[in-house]
Amino acid sequence: MSLETIQAKLELRELVDAYATLTDEKRISDQMLLFTPDTQFKVYMSDQLVANVSGTAQLEEEFNGHVSLVKRYFSLNGQHVVNVDGDTATGVVFSHIKMLRDGEEGTEVLTDYSVQYHDVYVRQNEKWLIKERTSKYIFVEAKVLQS
């Protein structure tokens, strides 16, 4: 493996970790800087397409709507399998996400998500960006937290 490929893989890992960190911090405007302006973002729950967004303007609107419903996030990235080809790359990120929301009658609901992000990356102006992201929610478990 060449030094350039190793460097690209390190930078791509930093990119996907920045995405998770910015999600946890609810810094959506900063998160949009990780995407190409013409990005494509899809979400599948099991095999059903539930979201298909084009461009960072629409993506930021969608994310802000979602963030308004969530009290706290906690994201943990696992494997990141990447194939680099010059200034383009593809990758799969395995992630575990927890979201805490208000439930009924003063309760809180904790939802655990096991997700695979299937990505297409491009390097523009010496910086890696996410051009396409397909989120596949494999397992979803919600429970009401006891007071």
Rank of each mutant, 00 (worst) to 15 (best):
I6S: 10
S68N: 07
F94V: 13
E60A: 11
Y137R: 01
V122A: 15
Y19A: 14
L76R: 02
K98W: 07
M1N: 09
V109K: 00
A142T: 11
T134M: 11
R133A: 09
V92S: 07
D102C: 07
R13T: 15
L10H: 04
V82Q: 05
K26T: 06
E61L: 07
N77L: 11
K136H: 05
S95E: 08
F94Q: 04
Q146S: 13
S46Q: 10
T23E: 11
V81P: 04
D102V: 09
T39F: 00
V53Q: 07
T107D: 12
Q124E: 14
H66F: 12
G91T: 08
G103F: 04
L145Q: 09
H96T: 07
V82G: 11
D17N: 13
Y19I: 12
V109P: 04
I97V: 15
L22K: 02
P37I: 00
K131T: 09
G55E: 11
A57H: 00
R101T: 12
P37H: 05
S46L: 06
N125V: 12
K127G: 12
I138G: 04
I28K: 02
R72Q: 11
Q48L: 14
Q7S: 13
S95H: 01
F139W: 03
V43Q: 00
K9I: 02
G55D: 12
T88K: 07
F41M: 09
F63C: 06
Y19L: 13
A57N: 03
S75T: 15
F35N: 09
V67G: 12
V16C: 11
N64A: 12
F41K: 00
Y137G: 02
N83H: 08
K136L: 03
M45V: 04
